[in-house]
């Protein structure tokens, strides 16, 4: 992908190459500094959630769904995933990330191949399960929309579609994969 872009750039505008790359890297650094601030707040609050036993309670509540969906049986991971999903639903993608990363690390079997539960967590996070599209509503209000929030209902419906299609596809792929593995044996 990068190579193709570089080849095209040599033809179109060779002078812009390095500046573009450095600008992008600067943007990445700015983003990371912002993320660091955001993560500090959320990880601090998360530690309180964890220490007070609230995380365990939330995990217990969501346990039936998580256990079925991710095929795991580990209290610590269930807790992380429960917090990750709750933050996502509230539209706090950046708060969900550190917990998601922790869950991913705990699920890693060090084999170098992504496990079913890891892929499921990435798919759920990559198909957006947020219930309130606050950024979009804010942008619409700024642009002078007469009713900025009137996209909430279609957005929720579309979100349900994306996430369920993603989950169904993952389950399907897993079934095909296990069947193929069985055939090989």
């Amino acid at each position: 992908m990068m190579l193709a872009s570089l080849f095209v750039l040599i033809y179109v505008d060779p002078g812009a190459t390095l500046t573009t790359m450095i600008d992008a890297s600067t943007d990445a650094l700015t983003l990371c500094i912002e993320l660091c601030a955001v993560y500090a707040v959320w990880l601090g609050l998360l530690e309180i959630v964890d220490a007070s036993g609230l995380g365990k309670k939330l995990a217990k509540l969501l346990r039936p769904i998580i256990k079925k969906l991710f095929k795991i049986d580990n209290e610590e991971i269930e807790k992380m995933i429960a917090l990750n999903m709750s933050a996502n639903m509230l539209g706090l993608g950046n708060a969900a990330t550190p917990m998601g990363i922790k869950a991913m690390q705990a699920m890693d079997d060090k084999s170098g191949v992504a496990t079913y539960s890891m892929m499921m967590l990435v798919i759920v996070n990559a198909t957006s399960i947020q219930l309130l599209p606050s950024t979009v509503i804010g942008l619409r209000a700024n642009a002078g929309s007469s009713d900025p929030a009137d996209i909430i209902l279609p957005t929720i419906l579309a979100t349900i579609v994306t996430t369920s299609v993603g989950i169904l596809l993952a389950i399907l792929c897993n079934k095909i994969k296990t069947r193929l593995a069985r055939k090989k044996k």
């Binding site: 890693d108 890891m118 993603g166």
Partner: peptide, 20 residues
């Protein structure tokens, strides 16, 4: 999400999410 793991092969995670 995968950056802090040892995973090199991402399997079907990205295609599934893209199709969805």
């Amino acid at each position: 999400y995968f950056s802090q793991t040892k995973v090199k092969k991402l399997g079907y995670a990205i295609p599934c999410a893209l199709i969805a």
